[in-house]
Design a protein around this nucleic acid. Structure first.
Lengths: 197, 197, 197, 197
DNA sequence: CATGAATGAGACTTCATTCAT
DNA sequence: TATGAATGAAGTCTCATTCAT
């Protein structure tokens, strides 16, 4: 693509965000040096600064780049034919691959963005989005009479998300992925059975 | 040879570990400077190096310092009169306060200790310990005929721990602690009801 | 061979010199970036290098561009009807506006051009030119018997120029322009009265 | 001096300020690198940052370091036995050496400190101080009936200072120091004669 | 043993200049 | 010839670690 075309700049940004995101996930924010990003993208350090004012700006751009993705994720839930699908290994795998393509909000990142209220809000909204999407799905199913639950839809949604996050966490601590997937299926099975009474 | 010296040295190490742990939890490993630790302990930077070879060594010592604590935690589970107690808000609160007094194994810390197989193993053992302790408790109750469960005790244990970690995670992202505690109680209630059939 | 090209080139150079001069005056040499100049002129950074080999070359060209102007300035003195006019507020204001349209030789600029003997000589010549012009004017008036002075014409000229520069300097340090103009008028009045005895 | 003594720190700061001041005067602010300062002082770059947070802080400290000096300068005026002494070559030389030991407020420095209202005020106060001191001296002499002047004491003071600054400026542009000194003596002679009528 | 000043490697960032398009 | 993205040298600043006192 010719460099004069305005889309080129957007494309270059995207590329940097992509590589930075990957590196941040792998090595963490602090341990990722501008040099690493530049080398990964295949340009000089200076070039990066044509697209981002600072390393910190890159982090923000990376975080923002997942906004669209998050919407997409949640919609995947909504497209599901019924809650039962949630309790499958396939669904768990899908979630996992989504996670791998996004940036985990670690304490380090929270600290780095601390003070930036916009981003903090953005992060919290993102975490709300899953909750809300799942809750809406459940409420929808209740409304059409497909299910009835003994606990509030919000609590159920919150529990499901916590289970997901906790299991994901265990993976990074070295847990066996098959055991983890199985746990998801079994525990979700219990929760679903309870929900669909 | 005076006995005081080694004891004093041990005491000094303990103090440093304590303060470092607190700072690592609060600000993260990278953002905690040697100066911060020295100031917190109330000694000079140079003095720290009499007890630890490097900042990284302090981290390892901090991690190791929780070995005893972890045993203690798990034993708290075992002292519980039955599984039902697990599904209470009181129990959730107790776990929470335990967490606050220990060092969360963040990605940043995993990265910092990467390459040190001993520590990695140690970390994984720690995460296993909870799992094992909970599983043993469940198995014990099954054995005495108090409960019978439809899923394996390991899966149940794994699910409970994931729920705990996921909920804890949501707290750091700004979730309301009362809602989170309630979710613990309700979801655990379902799991327990299912388990104790 | 088309004549247009060299003329166009000259025009482009002139434009760059003009804008650069303005920026150098406003922000200083170091703080003026090539980007600033390019933006001010309305061309790309790269284009500038078609007309000047370096930023430093632009500075030299800017300095040289005032050669003609300086002659003009001095001639304005000579056009004056008698010395008395020098001691007026109008004259002071005219000088001031001339200053604003030229580049003040600051220490920064002297340092930047240090080592370039041609330019250093050129700068000193420029400062001599005022002195000489003023001296010539005074000498001319003495010759025609209009005035007679108790000190040498060179000393008087030097004093007048110093007064001008010192007052100008005080302006940049925040002095009130009316007070400064008044000082010019009053002090020059004394000097003139003394001169014209 | 032992490094633990608190005075040592003050001494180190003083040393840095001294060397920095010299370098700023010689090469200008921007062209003086932290490396230059460190090398001049004879320490590593990092050491400087134990005493000053930034290069810009050093500049401020340098500026402030002349507060005492400025008071001293002005008092020198007041100690003068009568105005006549002002119009001597000795006095000119004394002023010159004072100048050489302080930091000239160049446009570059004004730009660097722009935005820092405290410093701007400080700079303007400094320039006021000379004016005020000189004016007070003149007023004092008028009061005791030693002199009477045809213009206001402020205007005279302002003119004298401008003359001084303008002559000093001509020196940095290569003027001959003897001619400049002579100009001071002669022009001041005229002004004094006028003042003391 | 303790102190804290000094070190120096290395991080982020800037910007004059070059060069592919 | 014009563009502006890329380069890379160099500058400011940080901080774990060392070491003279």
């Amino acid at each position: 693509m010719p460099k004069v075309v305005p889309e080129y700049k957007e494309e270059a940004r995207r590329k940097i965000i992509q590589h930075a995101s990957h590196l941040f996930s792998e090595k963490g924010y602090t341990r990722t040096k501008m040099t690493d990003i530049a080398e990964s993208v295949g340009v000089s350090k200076g070039a990066i600064y044509q697209y981002f004012e600072s390393k910190s700006e890159i982090l923000l751009a990376v975080l923002e780049s997942y906004t669209a993705l998050r919407e997409l994720e949640v919609r995947k839930f909504l497209n599901t034919k019924g809650l039962k699908f949630l309790a499958t290994g396939d669904f768990f795998d899908k979630m996992l691959s989504l996670r791998k393509n996004s940036l985990l909000i670690t304490p380090e990142i929270l600290q780095e963005t601390a003070g930036n209220m916009t981003v903090l809000k953005w992060i919290q909204d993102g975490s709300e989005k899953w909750l809300q999407g799942l809750k809406d799905l459940i409420d929808g199913l209740i409304e059409v009479g497909e299910i009835s639950i003994s606990i509030s839809s919000e609590v159920l949604a919150r529990g499901i998300i916590a289970l997901r996050d906790g299991l994901y966490n265990s993976l990074s601590l070295g847990a066996d992925v098959n055991k983890v997937r199985n746990t998801w299926v079994e525990i979700m099975g219990i929760l679903m059975k309870q929900a669909l009474n």
